[in-house]
Design a protein around this nucleic acid. Structure first.
Lengths: 371, 371
DNA sequence: AGCAAATTTGGTAGCGCTACCATCTTACTC
DNA sequence: GAGTAAGATGGTAGCGCTACCAAATTTGCT
């Protein structure tokens, strides 16, 4: 008779009894099968199946001081960019026995610091963190975390442990170069609120223009420069930091009394969408009078009219490969390459096909009239 | 001297020693402060702060068989709709000591069943599940889960425990009615892959047309009717089940040789976006020749040219209120209303302003010419 | 065969916390 | 003032698992 109410689930002892072995052997058969003989492994496997045994993860974590929790820090849950990353992470975690714990840093380094602090106290088995620009305090905590730390969605020469991502600088520069290559002369940069990765893109933009000798600070059109405060009222609004509305507004301003421009590199596809609509509303022809390029290459860029150029980045792969890296390391394999550059792709479409020379498919235009 | 390597973190015993009380009193001071005297509570609080003590959650869960984990089942991580819900959940969990564990059901009831099964074995303190159409097996498991179960993003007369959402049927019907009210005669329904909530919207659409006596099955234009298999190859592609590309394709088909239509209710904003671009590419005037309405009211709907009508739903609130409900119940408060209808809002904009009578702001059109 | 080394298995003792019960105060009733 | 109830505190014994060491068994080699 049990003294304490238990929930009736079979325990490792039940399995051990049924298999006629010691509890510890069952534990080993499950955790380190190679240390158990073929025969016992089978007997124990049968007992597990017959009893429908599932290990209690809390007990396991307590006894081993391994939580098997992978902590994932993302700056936002709303932007598609990170939900794609999360999708990769979830696809990558399958059948690993690992649990994922997501923390939302809200693009706020103070919040991130606090959350790293909290998360470390849960003793995660690994940490996946977005970006490479942690504060000094955050970096120190992560360095001393005593578990694999994978930085994703950016790249650096000096990773904490391992980084899987790409260069925002080079991506920004490459797209700007494309705009210059097709002959645009006055290229603007549109952005909503800037994070450190946006800054990288902007730096690439600036360098490309400087090399061409046509850089002008007035070409940088930002909205909402003010960083969101961490105060109660506004913290929940961080998800709106780039919207189509802003893209529209920025383009309208540029057309009305802004710098004279003939193309725009939008820091985010959704801004490009808004910019495109603004052009439509002002009868500005894209790409002839105005070139538009975005960043991320969400699916609607291809479907737009005209189809819009963008920089395709490998969000899902970042998440998936980060998870693979975590699994490998937890299995005792070596770290391997500490810097993994997944690259990017400048996708050229109609919205920047200034001369009709890109060979992109023409917009479908089926003649059609209603009533 | 310790026999087993510990990670050096202070334990409850350290705090107890420092405060000069028993370990159990420290536990109580933290878990049930009302059972501990004012004076001791303060002494213990000081000790906690001095030692920088943080309770070990695994030990707590093991000893109490309360995991303090809130399991959240969402069908997709990628669609904005659920990332908004998750944002609400994360905003709602702050400072509660609860942990969130997200499972991705991939719009697949078999996957959902398996995940409910797995999740129950982690003994969550509460479960938040998307939708009300669980399989019989899933429902039974949830009913016997022994913890609060909140269904969200749909509504039903017969919740498992508590439901917070809105009626997709009424939302679909209301938007369709709006299209009829402004005078459209042949209204189509566009959808990508249909889930049970989409079905509700469709049913509302059908009923509105039937009541008007103009229903015609040919008006239902679906793409990708085939349900995604759970097989390896395709399961990772579930996120593409509604894309702008599909909206564009559906509209092109409808214009070319489909049913003669003068308006379309898109099951999802992104389809509406694609449909709008298709109209632009075919020189079909919106809203005069073609009305377009979407569902979800993402931010770009307002910024589109013309601004697009949509049904605004309260995604963030669903998540946030679900979390509040969980917290209340775990604090021992009564369930309260078991059916919470958050409603929806038919947002009427230019894309359905057939007669120019809606009083919506005109599209900004600043006369503008380049070089 | 004889001995060392490698492999396989088991026992014990926790991991850090809380449920349960027991004890000790204090407050209140008659 | 005795008796009872209510509140505050503590001790003990686990929760279910695994680290650590010890013991038993097998293998390899001279």
């Amino acid at each position: 008779m049990r003294k304490r109410k238990s929930n009736g689930r079979p325990t490792i002892a039940d399995v051990a009894f049924r298999a006629g072995v010691g509890a510890i052997t069952v534990s080993r058969a499950l955790r380190h099968p190679d240390q158990v003989s073929e025969a016992l492994r089978k007997t124990i496997g049968d007992a597990v199946r017959e009893l429908d045994y599932v290990p209690n993860l809390n007990a396991r974590a307590l006894a081993s001081s391994h939580s098997n929790v992978v902590a994932v820090l993302v700056p936002s849950l709303t932007q598609n960019i990170f939900s794609d990353v999360l999708r990769g992470i979830y696809d990558g975690v399958e059948d690993s026995g690992l649990r994922i714990e997501i923390a939302n840093t809200r693009y706020n380094v103070e919040v991130e610091e606090r959350q790293i602090f909290e998360i470390l106290r849960h003793e995660p088995s690994a940490i996946i963190v977005s970006g490479t620009e942690q504060t000094a305090a955050s970096r120190k905590m992560l360095e001393n975390a005593g578990c694999p730390v994978i930085q994703i969605m950016d790249i650096t020469d000096d990773p904490i442990h391992k980084v899987i991502g790409f260069s925002h600088f080079h991506a920004g520069k490459a797209m700007t170069q494309h705009l210059l290559d097709v002959g645009y002369q006055r290229v603007a940069f549109f952005s909503g609120w800037m994070n450190s990765r946006s800054q990288g893109r902007l730096a690439g933009f600036v360098e490309a223009l400087e090399e061409a000798g046509i850089y002008d600070p007035k070409l940088i059109c930002e909205m909402g420069n003010e960083k969101p405060s961490a105060s109660q009222g506004s913290i929940k609004d961080y998800h709106q930091f780039s919207t189509a509305r802003m893209g529209r507004e920025l383009m309208l301003r540029a057309l009305e009394n802004g710098p004279r421009i003939d193309a725009v590199f939008c820091n985010n596809d959704v801004l490009a969408l808004g910019a495109l609509f603004a052009c439509a509303s002002c009868q500005v022809e894209v790409p002839r009078q105005m070139g538009i390029a975005g960043f991320n290459d969400f699916d609607y860029m291809e479907a737009a009219q005209p189809a819009m150029s963008s920089v395709r980045i490998h969000r899902w792969q970042c998440g998936y490969q980060a998870m693979q890296a975590v699994r490998n390391e937890l299995n005792g394999e070596p770290v391997g390459e500490r810097i993994v550059d997944l690259g990017f792709e400048v996708v050229k479409r109609g919205s920047t096909d200034r001369n009709g020379t890109l060979g992109v498919p023409p917009p479908g235009d089926i003649p059609f009239t209603l009533s």
